[in-house]
Write a protein that binds this DNA or RNA. Sequence first.
DNA 1: TCAAGGTGGTAATACGAATTACCACCTTGA
DNA 2: TCAAGGTGGTAATTCGTATTACCACCTTGA
Lengths: 343, 343
Amino acid sequence: MAGPRRRVTQQDIARLSGVSQTTVSLVLNSRYDAGVRIAPETRERVLEVIAETGYVADPVARRMVARRNRIIGVFTYEAVFPSGTRDFYQPFLAGIEESAEQLGCDLLLLTSAPVVDGRRRIFHDGNRFRLADGCVLLGRETDRGELARLVAEGYPFVSVGRRADAGGPVPYVGADYPGAVAELVARAVALGHRRLAYLGGGSHAESRGDRRDGFTAALTATGVAGLVLAGDTAELVARLPALVADGVTALFVEEPADCQRLADRLAELGHPVPTAVSVVALGDPTWPTTAEIDFTGFRIPRREMGRQAMEVLGALLAEEHTDPRRLLRCRRHRGASLTPPPG
Amino acid sequence: MAGPRRRVTQQDIARLSGVSQTTVSLVLNSRYDAGVRIAPETRERVLEVIAETGYVADPVARRMVARRNRIIGVFTYEAVFPSGTRDFYQPFLAGIEESAEQLGCDLLLLTSAPVVDGRRRIFHDGNRFRLADGCVLLGRETDRGELARLVAEGYPFVSVGRRADAGGPVPYVGADYPGAVAELVARAVALGHRRLAYLGGGSHAESRGDRRDGFTAALTATGVAGLVLAGDTAELVARLPALVADGVTALFVEEPADCQRLADRLAELGHPVPTAVSVVALGDPTWPTTAEIDFTGFRIPRREMGRQAMEVLGALLAEEHTDPRRLLRCRRHRGASLTPPPG
DNA sequence: TCAAGGTGGTAATACGAATTACCACCTTGA
DNA sequence: TCAAGGTGGTAATTCGTATTACCACCTTGA
């Protein structure tokens, strides 16, 4: 009952229908180029045998000859397990999947990439990303060296999230963080805030830096005072009393998952959010949290970023001309934590 | 600046280090079998050139010779877009991913499979599932014919969810629906319910049938009266008055996403849940819904099913002996919709 | 009768890595 | 001196498909 262990090949089909392997291949690919002709009867016979045996071409062998596979690699820099960032990345993946389905592509999730120094590596012994026609890169902290290498080798890839040049332009579909932050700063100023603070982690990742830059640029544009703090969550919390004493009335928080903890501490200090201090969340939480307050901020168009990244990759592979660097607008989230300052 | 378009091959390495392609391959694979020897100096020289060029073996060519790829295919029967079943399947995928990461495997999401008659097809022109060493199958309604073909061909695969034999045993990791349903029936009977009803869609899918069978078996075991209804949501809702009139006090609902609608209608009819009628949800909602009531029922161990499916597949591929058919226990969810009957 | 052109196919090869079979050279011992 | 055995490597082949180059045969027309 157990079927044949060995796969059916074109050679088998050829033998069964009394022709050569070449003929089988020609029939399968309907090649009627100049100089290649197959008699209709022969064609029929071959097709019949193919149908009987249920033969399907081996995609691996196919890929050996053709350059295309219709397989797109998806590489996630941050290790997904056991860290809790999965929920954050899920919408990106949903967008990528949706696009792949439309394009008729399969997705190769490069889950096998080893983790070195807390970060996945694209280049490593036995890496398999080249099996794909191209790659979508996901993750906050990408390795500049690896990026540069991909660029230098001319490997088709698109980053989800803006990336600085790495020995050449890096194709990306990112979120317009500077624009989104500037809009919120303008809103705070319009409400009467005159001393603002940016609370960040000091990360060099573009997604973080872009927020910071957007903040400082907006300060200059509006002419109000502001300061930029860097530190981990605990450090930021510790600096809250000084900030309040300094007359700061609005906090712009880089990592939205920190907001609730900051608000809790502010309440303890006798400065409840938003009546005493306003808090703005710059994006979606990177890790799961529970928030009692509906924080004002913006939403990263994650799904759309995934979708368009695939679109750009498709264009790159087809050698069509598209803008390979796109910034998408973030949707503002009204929320309830940005109100006029007291007094 | 743009690097070489052509990939670096073993042939290139061989040329650069003055040896044959064979030698390069031997060095790379550290083959020191009897009869194969490479001088340490030669080895060093080759390794140096490899490091300089950043050569990595082409996984496609590799797969041509070796039989293993360390790539596992994931096939989802139900089309994921635009239908809203994504949330339901996500935990399965999370488990599969987690396992893949541990096993050092990549995952090939077969998103390209065409949809015919509302169902994805594994076998189709240009299918690529054979690129993978084996496959995990996901989805409520699988095609018996395709399953049988996979079994007959000896292709290694594991179904997430129990499947009936298809010309041979089908490896699966399923949920113990009969057990879970029986437990809930027993609980209802213990609380005093004497007339129960099963409200289902009449689907022939194993996941549905197993719940139904569990229900009827539990009726027999406990000796109480019960009836089984089949129909879509609207039809089931329409039959509520008759059920209540008939003295039924507990409803066992196959599709948890239907529960709220049924409860709403019951409230309209003057039989609020759970005071007048108890409602039991047999699993997790297959599509997104909002429920005001915390329905009593059970949780499908989705993530664990995904994890173990990969485990079983790994064992199959390694030709280890494992039980290729596993049923996992469902965790009971206490909830608030199963209470003693009125009176 | 033979060149021209059409018809229907096949042999050979490429793709890149792995593996098998074998070879040329050297040393050793009797 | 020469068989035995060790050393260090290579040529050839394999995997399955696609493609190119070519061939054998037939018909036609002058």
